[in-house]
């Protein structure tokens, strides 16, 4: 229970900070539920669980009405972010905690409200050096260092914060819901 309370408190703190910081963008939480929460996953830092998270994200993005390429973009970004957490924040340890929280958000766009999917990834590894979050130039052909680039290409907002011993990666994708069910 203490772990749950700590998580709730952490989320509350982050939400307040985010609302404060994003006010200029006029982001407003959807009225679908009290805080827009759609899905919350808690997992260990075991790479074998990545496919389970991808499956959940594929279904969630389908249900929300994202197009097939958008479904793939969001799934890819979350998968790459989790991979980075497992490799770099936890150094390959398999039993460390990770939380994935997906919420519906809205912002005022130029032609009216825009719907968005926000994914918050939290881990308790050491703080990340912001300089290492820049990624590498793609001009040179070599393996490695592509994950961050793929995340940035796939999402509209990518943010990192360190708060109370927790790394928090916030990813947002804005979209126009499609009526038919896409095949992701």
């Amino acid at each position: 229970m203490n772990g749950v309370r700590a998580t709730q408190s952490l989320m509350k703190t982050f939400r307040r900070a985010r609302e404060r910081d994003t006010k200029p963008h006029a982001e407003v939480r959807a009225a679908a539920s009290k805080n827009g929460l759609l899905l919350k996953l808690e997992l260990h830092s075991d790479p074998r669980l990545l496919s389970a998270v991808r499956g959940a994200l594929e279904r969630l993005t389908e249900v929300m009405g994202l197009s097939a390429p958008e479904c793939r973009s969001v799934t890819r970004a979350v998968d790459e972010a989790l991979t980075n957490i497992m490799r770099h924040c936890y150094g390959g340890r398999l039993d460390q905690p990770i939380e994935v929280t997906c919420s519906r958000i809205r912002r005022r766009g130029a032609v009216g409200p825009e719907e968005g999917l926000e994914i918050l990834l939290c881990d308790r590894g050491p703080a990340v050096d912001p300089a290492k979050l820049r990624g590498r130039p793609l001009d040179e052909i070599r393996p490695g260092g592509l994950g961050l680039h793929l995340i940035r290409q796939s999402m509209d907002t990518v943010e990192y914060r360190r708060m109370r011993g927790t790394n928090q990666f916030r990813l947002v994708k804005y979209f126009n819901p499609v009526k038919s069910q896409p095949n992701c």
């Binding site: 890819r76 790459e80 052909i141 070599r142 393996p143 592509l146 994950g147």
Partner: peptide, 16 residues
């Protein structure tokens, strides 16, 4: 169906 960046890195290593 899906390849992540570590899979791409493996392909690049194979290519090189």
């Amino acid at each position: 169906r899906y390849i992540d960046s570590s899979g791409v890195a493996s392909l690049v290593e194979g290519l090189k």
